[in-house]
Design a protein around this nucleic acid. Structure first.
Lengths: 248, 248
DNA sequence: TTCGTAAAATTGGTCACACCAATATTGCGG
DNA sequence: CCGCAATATTGGTGTGACCAATTTTACGAA
């Protein structure tokens, strides 16, 4: 465990103490001077370590008070929270529907053409080096980009990363996608048509429908397979999302 | 443009130079001693700034060689994108409205009570150690938490961070908030009432109205003051957002 | 005793200076 | 022109000091 820079080593030692429960979440860790003595390094090294940990969101440094351990329970290494498939899909349903509605009036013909291309790739009509999954992502991201809003692009991009990086989701999503290819195709086409007509309401509805059916497919998959964790969360989300749907 | 800690300010100045193209991707930035002189701070401050930037994956520090700018395409993890006030507010209007609609049917009485408390803090009726701005954030975040959806909580929390961390936004927002205290109060009350009635549509509408008026206030502010950069972006967003509004 | 406030101690923030180690550059000899 | 050593540059670490924000302590008034 030899690091190139001293503060790396110090930061790791601090993290070990945190993860081992010596410094529980919310607690205040010893002062920089104490830690320096304890680790046998200078205060500068401890300080740099704490700055790095703060930049990673593991601790919070308060002037004149001390450094406090933040709750890292629901944070993955990349900074994105680890979430379940239902809440992710629910959030995507809401946010991507608004994204599509916002993009509809201002989407360019070029973007429309690209979306059409991605649909053809997903259906297998066009052969490229792009996988169906990549085309799916490109399809959704292209719509987000058509809003010309960097925040929306950022948010939807992050949600896709959550989907990609969560191992639990991968398993569930894959089993779902294998058996709903034709549905997905129809839904994407519906979204494209709404955008082609520059109809915000239709785009919103089509996008919502897309994710709504995805949630239903997830429910089926969670009952077939033995995803105990998923099942548990499903019972929570099912009633909630039904409520959301009846609003439209 | 005043940050709490010096190294934070230095890090932002370095980021500006990177994003403005002065230090392109892959290039080596000036030595710590040079930057310290240029920014008028000590070498320690520059060093801490670079450590923070390294922890965020923006630069790579090589011993004896220098600090090199990394490809920012992989950012967006811990680092938030720099955004303008209009696109941020537009995104918040869309996302927070859906958040409120989703929370409305399932919000607890405890949450309602808390929201009421935050409103009173903002109006000054209740005196605590919490500032009006902090109460404002707590109000919006409490609604997001009431969705029980970690993705939504994460997204809305991130948008608030963007608002806090963007220096440009601070100036504009501040000038707006100074003169719309009463409006904000009424709007928050309207949101609360909709949630109290467990009315999703009303909650969505109230939240949209809240941000719609904020955008209008931003437009006024951008015309009064000499925020050239803001003005330019305003002309883009004005027409777009008008279109969004007519959907409801 | 209880409470509020002022003094003292603690803690993070910043700085200047010094020295070491890794890396780049220079310059000399071949 | 090339290779290598001397030199300069740059990041890494340490020490000590002082400031500012915060917390704790202590003391005096009610």
């Amino acid at each position: 465990m030899v690091e190139k820079r001293l503060y790396h080593s110090v930061a790791n030692q601090i993290l070990e103490l945190i993860d081992s429960g010596v410094f529980p979440t919310g607690s205040r860790l010893p002062g920089e001077r104490d830690l320096a003595t304890k680790f046998g390094v200078s205060r500068v090294a401890v300080r740099e370590a704490e700055i790095a940990l703060q930049a990673q969101g593991r601790i919070e440094i308060k002037i004149g008070s001390g450094a406090y351990v933040l709750d890292a329970s629901n944070k993955a290494l990349n900074g994105l929270p680890k979430v379940g498939p239902f809440e992710l899909t629910e959030a995507r349903a809401l946010f991507e529907a608004e994204s599509a509605a916002l993009a509809a009036p201002i989407i360019t013909d070029e973007a429309i053409a690209e979306l059409e291309k991605y649909i053809n790739i997903m259906s297998g009509e066009v052969v490229t080096d792009m996988s169906a999954d990549e085309a799916d992502e490109a399809f959704h991201m292209r719509i987000a980009q058509s809003t010309n809003n960097h925040v929306i692009i950022f948010v939807i991009g992050n949600m896709w990363k959550m989907r990609t990086e969560a191992a639990e989701l991968q398993t569930v999503y894959k089993s779902v996608c294998d058996k709903d290819g034709s549905h997905r195709q129809d839904e994407h086409t519906a979204i494209l048509n709404a955008l082609r007509n520059r109809d915000p309401s239709a785009a919103r509805a089509a996008m919502r429908a897309h994710f709504t059916r995805m949630i239903e497919a997830l429910l089926v998959a969670s009952e077939e397979a033995a995803y105990e964790e998923v099942k548990r969360k499903a019972s929570e989300s099912r009633s909630r999302f039904t409520l959301t749907q009846q609003l439209h």
